[in-house]
């Protein structure tokens, strides 16, 4: 469904992506791991068109994304941002229903609100939070609202950028379980970016490890522990000793 071929992206002299090849089949949950600054977020921002790659091809369902109708293309996506990226000036329900209140997916306001409240319930939040502002919510609740917004328009493809960063282990576990359940029940294709190994094991069907601007290893999560790749082994064990330099 999503195929990246020889993707390159540099910022000045810093070559972040140096020929990334990746394939994410339809309905699969791919988790991209890698150290900080290895270009994981850049990768999904390139797919979404938020960053323009220097070279390489990004295809969704065999179509080059640069040739696709932008609105129709984005309407297929949902995204949970690392910090939530909720709109401060809008109440929670309008954040969740943002896409349903404007543009091609516009619905009547009452219907959009109902859908928003249903999605909030789906992520474990009561309707009481619907009229609150994002600043009045805890970090975990904001993540859930971000998750509800990502799934509000029933997207075919969902991206999760560091979904458990900044959360306590229990809340991180709740978010991981929610992501896994939602991806499974919606049949969506998902790419999750994380360096939280608990998230990887909870969310992934497949794993790809980015290192030095390329996919160092990719395969099913069940084979991750026996990969025989020293880089992957060091990363999943969190060891300071190994081929990955601890000081970067």
């Amino acid at each position: 469904m999503i195929r990246l071929t020889d993707l390159h992206k540099s910022f000045g002299n810093n070559a972040v992506l140096r020929g990334v090849d990746l394939h994410v089949p339809k309905g699969e949950s791919m988790v991209v791991i890698g150290g900080s600054g290895t270009g994981k977020s850049v990768l999904i921002k390139c797919i979404l068109g938020l960053i323009t790659p220097d070279s390489g091809v990004i295809e969704v369902d065999g179509q080059d994304v640069t040739e696709a109708d932008r609105d129709a293309f984005l309407a297929r996506f949902g995204m949970l941002f690392q910090g939530g990226a909720l709109f401060d000036s809008l109440p929670v329900w309008q954040n969740v229903a943002f896409r349903l209140l404007r543009g091609s997916l516009k619905r009547p306001k009452s219907e959009a609100r109902e859908i928003a409240i249903e999605k909030l319930r789906r992520v474990g939040l009561s309707s009481d939070v619907a009229d609150r502002l994002p600043a009045e919510l805890s970090g975990g609740m904001q993540k859930r609202v971000g998750l509800a917004r990502a799934i509000a328009a029933n997207p075919e493809i969902i991206f999760f950028d560091e979904p458990t960063t900044g959360l306590d282990p229990i809340m991180a576990g709740v978010i991981n379980d929610l992501i896994r359940e939602i991806v499974t029940e919606m049949g969506a294709t998902a790419i999750t970016i994380t360096h939280d190994m608990a998230s990887v094991r909870a969310i992934a069907d497949d794993v790809a490890m980015l290192h030095a601007g390329k996919v160092r290893w990719s395969g099913p999560v069940s084979k991750m522990d026996d990969s025989g790749d020293p880089y992957l082994h060091q990363f999943i064990t969190g060891s300071a000793e190994g081929p990955i330099e601890a000081i970067r």
């Binding site: 921002k45 979404l48 609105d71 984005l74 949902g78 941002f81 896409r99 404007r102 997916l105 917004r149």
Partner: peptide
Amino acid sequence: DALVTLST
């Protein structure tokens, strides 16, 4: 970025 991903 969130606005863009929400087709706005």
